[in-house]
Nucleic acid binder design. Structure first.
Lengths: 195, 195
DNA sequence: TTTTCAAATGAACGCACGTTCAGTTAGATG
DNA sequence: CATCTAACTGAACGTGCGTTCATTTGAAAA
């Protein structure tokens, strides 16, 4: 059987990536087999190789795509001007971008160790570029005297860990809605760096 | 060959656990084979089964031991009295306990998804018990009017994510020593929850 | 010196892995 | 209607997996 209705390259390709992302987030890269991914897509394992070069490339593509999206979306945010307002905008952006992308966040962070050295270096550089956007805000705030921060680099890493941690416990059907969580964290961040 | 000098059960057993912890932290539970662990210890794979029931039990033991140590050590800390001082003591304890145990932290967090449902429930209960110690401090501080925190549970999870995040980037040979890092984070935490 | 047995070996088990590829199928093309 | 070919199948490849177990070893006990 081949070329069923609605089963073209443009459809199967994305389905492979979606299934792989979900399964890897749930069980881990090494624990997920190509046959499992194929099963989710509804094809045999061999068919996956019409869309990916090999398993390692699939993982790297997933992580690179995510980081690309993060950087592209972040680039659209205006984080210049008043550092206090910029920090609040960054906080809002980070939470609202990452919370609906829990699988991507999980995979991009957990599976770094399964990346080839070259691929690892590339992803790390993208992550660093994102961190630098926050650090620039902190530096501007310190220079302006509106932030009291002992070390902008360490504080950057701390704040990102604080914010990204939300993806590990947030439950859309839970006690708090996103707006409330965002408000709580905005306040935590604002106070933590306040002069 | 059997029973070489210094190769008794009391020695090989711990070596198995140490090797497993290091390898799993580095490559992930699913990616590490029993033969790799055995190789690190200096025995054949079959010999491991004198010390563990199976691979899953090994993972669970590593995680349970870590959580046991955390809870035991935390129980020795006096976190009563002035909430501001208690929070500072908790911060110091958390950093100084976890920073020399990066492999344990990594494994206990990353490999939760590879735990059997029963084992997962047990580990989660221990983690929750630890979190509750911090939340008790926050609640006391809010009651005393010395902390301004919108939600003690969410803030607890946030602060732990902030503090534990240190293990992901701290480099003992890097720019900052532990005392400096501790001072930076103590200040971040103190200000974040201050009334 | 002989006996004992904890602690290992090393081969074997069935199974699943990532990947390749010759062959098959069915929608699109002329 | 005949042809083409993108998309997929299904079997096969060699490899390594977790685990078991009869056998061997050598330090300690008698």
């Amino acid at each position: 059987m081949a070329r069923k209705q609605g089963s073209h390259s443009d459809i199967t390709g994305p389905k492979v990536r979606e299934a792989a992302l979900r399964l890897i987030a749930q069980h881990g890269y090494a624990a997920v087999s190509m046959r499992q991914i194929a099963g989710e897509v509804g094809v045999q394992a061999g068919a996956l190789y019409n869309y990916i070069a090999d398993k390692q490339s699939l993982l790297f593509d997933l992580m690179q795509s995510h980081m690309d999206e993060v950087l592209t979306a972040a680039a659209r945010e205006d984080l210049t001007g008043d550092p206090v307002a910029a920090l609040e905008r960054f906080t809002a952006f980070h939470i609202r971008f990452h919370l609906p992308r829990r699988d991507q966040v999980f995979v991009s962070y957990m599976e770094l160790r399964n990346l080839d050295p070259d691929n690892f270096t590339r992803i790390e550089a993208m992550r660093r570029a994102y961190e630098d956007r926050l650090e620039a805000i902190l530096k501007a705030g310190v220079a302006a005297g509106v932030f009291a921060v002992a070390d902008t680099r360490v504080t950057t890493l701390g704040l990102i860990a604080l914010l990204t941690g939300i993806t590990n416990w947030y439950d859309p059907d839970g006690r708090l809605d996103i707006d409330t969580v965002q408000a709580i964290y905005t306040e935590l961040v604002r106070k933590a760096v306040a002069a």
